[in-house]
Design a protein around this nucleic acid. Structure first.
Length: 552
RNA sequence: GCCCCCGUAGCUCAGGGGAUAGAGCGCUACCCUCCGGAGGUAGAAGCGCAGGUUCGAAUCCUGCCGGGGGCACCA
């Protein structure tokens, strides 16, 4: 019996009590059961009696007793206790607890998925770092978390499009092009230009692609460097993200918004909705109609569109491409954007609460030996995605970045990451998965297979129960993590619940015979439990984009 | 001045109103001739402060203190 099934059972018990006139309350839409912190409190507990007591005008313990009597009749429930102020502590029958193994094994890669977002077309925009240099570790947080979020949303049934917005318009690209030109001529970096070693490299690569640039006069050469340099940059960025396991479906160009007419269409749409006006020669959007602190300029008095106009065009464009919901993952340095983006969506005639979701994540502090490293793309002093991966490997980097909440600033000590590689929790989780695989291998070598008809009621050891309960939680963990957009919950669950329980199970519960021993009756169910454990670890790690190796 | 995030063990972090607040690292003491010890067991150690809401608050609300980020006709 899974927690979801048990919750449903408790709910129907409440309904039955109401039906029978024992309780005068509205039956709650959903009743959930939780794992109690203290083992002695049973396999699961529910506080439903505490919540209903007041509405029913009865004492909580009285309500609990009344529900307990009915719960004891439920199939698969072995024990029901009323505890403390009115908690219902439940213990499942051995067989009912073990059945989760069969559920996991039969569902395989599908175990943990749900349909909460079925049919929803989601545009997930993340990273979107300026294409003027390599992806640095600050952006890598969004690569790891954003991709994991995409996987989570997909596991909840959503159709997810991963999108990268390329800021290929604006003065930073002018400076970038000028810097490439200077580097190609061996000239000093221009004022406000980009320096770093990569600039010369990229300039050389641009020249490889288009050798004729070398012979052009400066103005034209810079123009070509703008175009070809951008291609080099995007290839570089795309490549390093791909090697990190993050593949974007759509690369949207800011420049193309203007040439494709998306800007004009957006402007027209906003005018039609009646939120555009002119003042001091500039064109404004009255975002204050929808809670923004001040109105925003769309077209400056010199006739040039603002960055915000591009944002507007981009949003309207996304919606016109059929997305129900546009999710933006932005760094904390963009938090001031949230208000105007929401107002913008409203100005375009949408309900931002439905169509727009901005996730703000806190920044990454890069430290080296405890000292902060100042990172600047322009000064070329930065730690790149590739530097990080070279130090830690993809799995460790992705796991480390995805296992903490994005509400908190992340301190990433490059030295410590290298030094503590073997202490990284990812290895603890992967090691458990490896053990699961090795048990299977060794079993096969002995000619044993884990048929899914094994007698799971033999799984009576406390360590087995602990592991069974942990595995059963997985679907709820996935659903919650997806709903809250918090991939780190999956990581914490894997390490603190599953891997931990698996290691303890390993320690106390021998599966295969040693030497001349007979094959124990528990061998088959335990083998199957290991298979289920492997599946949950694989599925969970896959949500984070981390591999579950067969061997380490 | 206004807005957003954070403050939990010595350190790095989990804990979306529930019972005795959890991990990793570090520290102390144990276990291990075993299907892979990157392990297991036991222990010391903590919710910034003050109010409020609630049967019940690390969690929700208000204020204060401390840290980080942001408030353009820049991109």
């Amino acid at each position: 019996m899974t927690p979801a099934e048990l919750g449903a059972a408790v709910r129907s018990v409440v309904a039955a009590a109401v039906q029978a006139g024992e309780l005068d309350v509205e039956v709650p839409a959903e009743v959930s059961v939780e794992r109690p912190r203290v083992k002695e409190h049973g396999d699961y507990a529910t506080s439903v009696a505490l919540q209903l007591a007041k509405k029913a005008g009865r004492g909580p313990r009285e309500v609990a007793e009344l529900l307990a009597a009915r719960l004891r009749e439920v199939d698969g429930v072995a024990e029901v206790d009323v505890a403390g102020p009115g908690f219902l502590n439940l213990r499942l029958a051995q067989g009912a607890l073990g059945e989760v193994v069969r559920t996991v094994v039969r569902q395989g890669p599908a175990f943990g998925r749900n349909e909460a977002l079925a049919g929803l077309a989601v545009d997930l925009e993340f990273v979107s770092a300026n294409p003027t240099g390599p992806v640095h570790v600050g952006s890598v947080r969004w690569a790891a978390v954003g991709d994991a979020l995409g996987r989570l949303l997909e596991a909840s049934g959503a159709k997810v499009t991963r999108e990268y917005y390329v800021n290929d318009a604006g003065v930073q690209i002018d400076r970038f092009a000028a810097s490439l030109y200077a580097a190609s001529k061996g000239l000093p970096t221009p004022e406000e230009g980009y320096q770093g070693e990569y600039v010369a490299e990229w300039a050389a690569r641009a020249l490889e692609r288009e050798p004729a640039i070398a012979d052009l006069p400066e103005t034209e050469a810079v123009e070509r460097f703008r175009v070809v340099g951008l291609q080099v940059a995007l290839d570089e960025i795309r490549g390093s993200l791909a090697s990190f396991g993050v593949d974007f479906d759509v690369w949207s160009s800011e420049l193309a918004l203007a040439t494709s007419g998306a800007v004009d269409r957006a402007l027209q749409r906003l005018r039609d909705q009646g939120h555009v006006y002119e003042n001091d020669g500039a064109v404004w959007l009255r975002t204050t109609d929808f809670g923004d602190d001040k109105d925003r300029v769309l077209v400056k008095s010199d006739g040039v569109g603002t960055y915000f106009l591009s944002d507007a065009a981009y949003y309207v464009d996304k919606r016109s491409r059929g997305f129900d919901r546009c999710i933006y993952m932005l760094g904390a340095d963009h938090h001031g954007y949230v208000g105007r983006l929401k107002a913008l969506a409203a100005c375009a005639g949408d309900d931002p609460a439905q169509t727009l979701e901005v996730r703000i994540g806190q920044l990454v502090n890069v430290l080296q030996g405890g000292q902060p490293v100042k990172m600047s793309k322009r000064a070329g002093t930065m730690v790149t995605l590739e530097d990080l991966v070279a130090l830690t490997g993809v799995d460790a980097a992705r796991y480390t970045l995805a296992r903490s909440s994005t509400d908190s600033t992340l301190d990433l000590d490059v030295e410590a990451v290298t030094r503590q590689t073997s202490d990284n929790p990812v290895f603890y989780v992967q090691y458990a998965a490896t053990r699961a695989a090795s048990v299977q291998r060794n079993a096969e070598a002995l000619g044993l297979t884990a048929g899914d008809d094994a007698d799971l009621s033999l799984l009576t050891h406390p360590r087995e129960a602990e592991l069974l309960l942990a595995l059963a939680e997985f679907p709820a963990v996935v659903a919650t993590a997806a709903e809250l957009r918090e991939p780190h919950r999956v990581a914490r669950y894997l390490e603190e619940s599953v891997a931990k329980a698996a290691q303890r199970f390993w320690d106390d519960c021998q599966v295969l015979p040693k030497g001349d021993e007979e094959v124990a009756p528990t061998a088959a169910p335990r083998l199957l439990l290991w298979r289920a454990t492997r599946t949950v670890l694989e599925n969970g790690l896959a949500l984070l984009g981390v591999s579950a190796p067969e061997r380490m």
